[in-house]
Design a protein around this nucleic acid. Structure first.
Lengths: 224, 224
DNA sequence: TCATTCTTTCAAAAAGTTCTGAAAGTTGTA
DNA sequence: TACAACTTTCAGAACTTTTTGAAAGAATGA
């Protein structure tokens, strides 16, 4: 079913907005646009639909779709008597973000924690006595530096373990309860002290790198 | 104070790990490495120290430092009788992430919400009666499509408003209470059902794009 | 089996990002 | 004012990521 011109324009604007967001979060723009298109139309689209609407090549479409399938936020949909593959986006926003959080935990936080543990234990195993390293004695200053280093890594590990546990409770089957809790908490929370700004003209620059670039040159002190 | 070779190696490994993480989260690698260096050494370093330790150019160091200052996760430190600028990283991990969350809300979520509101209200103002658009009548099918579109945007808005409110309560002065609550909750939570994997050999590829690439070719169905 | 339809892959090109190094700028001291 | 010490900027180089288009691979039905 063809949308009217107004609706189509609004869809395009949504696709562009979602695509812009993507780069700030380490996702390729096109992949986000494909997802946005599937989400906002709510329709089952085939590769050719997506190629045409987004003006991208077949290879690019195929690759983006595959990645979205791997993430698990879109799924295949079949049509009897049609050999084409159709795709549809998860329509429940909370379910969608549960999937995203689960994947990012698995792909990014878990490996990070593994690395941190390794760095931490490699240098000063928790069960070794201070002042000893591989049987050799180290100076008190060195021992202190070693201890502080370990403590810094431990802080980070503690933080990410907390993040991981909280996220898992959001993501788990029982996480729907947490979702409900979040919703209630939000209702209970005071209203925004700083409401969204009155929509600046939004130039096409990425917001993350928007630095006021018109100041004077040279040795500019930012804060006293 | 010069660290011993072991400590220095561990610091370098941490810097590399943190730098790898960065790209997955839309931050430039060098910027993350500069931050990692300042965090893990716990020392006040000047531009030349950073250039030398990280083997980067003056321009790059200057730019990374400036961005980190803009984010607010490092600060200038002065030394009497020395005209150089020194820099130091926030050492409290929770405070650091509070700052990061605050900035990302401001730079990414707020503009996103503004755009979403705009798209939503532009197409079907909340106070208009259904079936009417700018005085002209639309077909029932069109009106339905318009309504569903608006509902999809509303779901997203609701989600991000919730995220924003929860994040603000984490970020606010009273957020320390929330931090404590999170810590308690974490203690109360069951231990990881899926503990971090036994540290795969970590090839230099970015974990986010690590796709099993050795399967058969052609029309490969991923799931039945 | 073959022809058809559809999907995936991959090498090369394009686009985008980050880095460098020299030049321009600032500040403080004499 | 001139100078020394330091910082920032910016055009082009280097590098990385994304995109394309054509070729190869699969599934289906006759």
């Amino acid at each position: 079913m063809e949308p009217g011109p107004d609706l189509r324009a609004a869809q395009d604007r949504f696709v562009a907005t979602w695509g812009q967001m993507a780069s700030a979060w380490g996702i390729s723009r096109t992949m986000a646009e494909v997802h946005a298109l599937l989400y906002i139309t709510g329709a089952d689209l085939c590769t050719d639909d997506i190629m045409e609407r987004l003006q991208i090549s077949r290879g690019n479409a195929s690759m983006s779709i595959r990645n979205l399938l791997d993430w698990g936020i879109i799924e295949r949909a079949h049509r009897r008597g049609d050999r084409k593959d159709y795709f549809r986006a998860e329509q429940d926003v909370w379910a969608m973000f549960r999937v995203i959080v689960r994947e990012r935990l698995k792909r990014e936080v878990d490996p990070l924690l593994a690395s941190l543990h390794e760095i931490r234990d490699d240098l000063s195993p928790r069960d070794s006595r201070p002042g000893l390293r591989g049987g050799a004695r180290v100076s008190p200053a060195e021992a202190k530096a070693l201890g502080e280093h370990a403590a810094r890594i431990d802080s980070l590990v503690d933080f990410f373990v907390t993040v991981e546990k909280l996220s898992r409770s959001f993501v788990s089957p029982a996480g729907k309860g947490l979702q409900a809790a979040a919703w209630l908490l939000r209702k209970a929370l005071p209203d925004d002290p700083t409401p969204p700004p009155p929509t600046p003209p939004t130039p096409p620059t990425t917001p993350a790198s928007a630095t006021p670039n018109s100041g004077p040159r040279g040795r500019e002190r930012r804060s006293a």
